Amino acid sequence: MTEPAVRADLAAIHIPVMAGTVADYLAPALDHPGAVYVDGTVGVAGHASLILDRDPQAVLIGIDRDADALELAARRLTRFGDRVRLVRARFDELERVLDESGAERIDAMLLDLGLSSLQVDRTDRGFAYRVDAPLDMRMDTRGPLTAADVLNTYSPADLVRVLREYGEERQARRIVQTIVDEREREPFATSARLVRAIAGALPSAVRAGQGGHPARRVFQALRIEVNGELDALSGVLPVMLDRMAVHARAAVLAYHSLEDRIVKRAFAGAASDSAPAGLPVVPEPLLARFSLLTRGAQRPTEDEVGQNPRAASARLRVIERVRPAGGGER
């Protein structure tokens, strides 16, 4: 099968996580002419195509840093014509993208923070620990830093920090010592060698008690470091909230506790009054501008996880703007 055929096949089999639930939450904000829907991680357009079908008055601004994903999204969304604008950018460039698109306000926005099938299933990208591939892991191949660069050039202390902070890996020091010993013998270049090094660093009792693949946390940590994922998430949330119109809705799908914690704190702050504690009556200007539509993080159903195992760790949070900033609407 040719490469374009492989990529088209990936788009066909891609199952967007909690797609119906996300579409249901966003639909009330997209029921008027010219409603602006922003997909900050458009991927192969699984969510976007469903939402554009269900909300025929909406227009899409689709953002992704992955050129291959945007190519597939463009093909998949051709039937929507001029309702679609696709932009190659990182989602924390949202302010610039909106300004250049002439969109003053957002009516609905989705951030799906998971890896797409395109990234996981393409063996040349290095995201999957079960397939031997070059240690790349860049979502945007224009980026200067690869996973191999991190492994081969970071100091032991920085490697420990990355594995602990981004992978929540308790055995970080043990794994890093093995990585440092191995890279002195020969620099890391492929994922299979890294997986062997990780497995070799862990006593059998530790591996047995971890649950899941022993390399999972290390690969997560490297991917986050290479792509600056948590910094990008922290950067986009204030802009997204600021540019939301009254009655606009935003949904975020997170897949591990680090991402979800950032989203939870940002949404909780936006949905809280800014009045001093104990004030008997909160003045109108100090009332919360947002309301949480999900109490806690909503999880996929058992049926969905059965159909799409990649949805198992998904956590969905949705927020709605209920008041304008200051005295008037943006």
Rank of each mutant, 00 (worst) to 15 (best):
A5P: 12
A5R: 14
V6G: 11
A12T: 12
A12C: 12
A12P: 11
H14T: 12
A23K: 00
D24C: 08
A29D: 05
L30E: 00
H32P: 07
A35K: 08
V38G: 04
D39K: 08
D39M: 05
T41K: 01
G43K: 03
A45Y: 09
A45I: 09
A48P: 05
S49E: 12
I51N: 00
R54M: 09
R54S: 01
P56H: 03
Q57R: 14
L70G: 07
E71W: 10
A74P: 06
R75N: 14
R76Y: 03
G81C: 08
R85Y: 10
V87L: 08
R88E: 10
R88Q: 14
R96D: 14
V97G: 06
D99V: 15
D99W: 14
G102P: 04
A103R: 10
E104V: 15
I106F: 04
A108S: 02
A108K: 02
L110M: 09
D112C: 00
L113I: 05
L113E: 01
L118V: 03
M139W: 04
M139F: 12
R142N: 15
A147Y: 08
V150N: 09
N152I: 11
S155Q: 11
R161Y: 08
V162C: 07
E165W: 02
Y166H: 10
G167E: 04
G167Y: 01
Q171A: 12
R173S: 11
E184D: 14
R185A: 11
P187G: 07
P187S: 06
S191N: 05
I198E: 03
I198Q: 01
R207F: 06
G209T: 11
G209E: 12
G211H: 10
F219A: 03
Q220S: 00
Q220A: 03
A221N: 04
L222K: 05
E225G: 08
S234T: 13
V239I: 13
H247N: 15
A251W: 02
H256P: 05
S257W: 07
E259I: 01
R261L: 05
K264M: 08
R265H: 14
A268E: 15
S272L: 07
S272E: 13
D273I: 01
A275C: 10
A277F: 09
F290N: 07
F290T: 02
S291P: 10
S291C: 13
L293C: 06
L293R: 12
N308S: 05
P309G: 07
A311I: 08
A312L: 09
L316C: 03
R317H: 03
R321V: 09
R321T: 09
R323Q: 09
G328N: 13
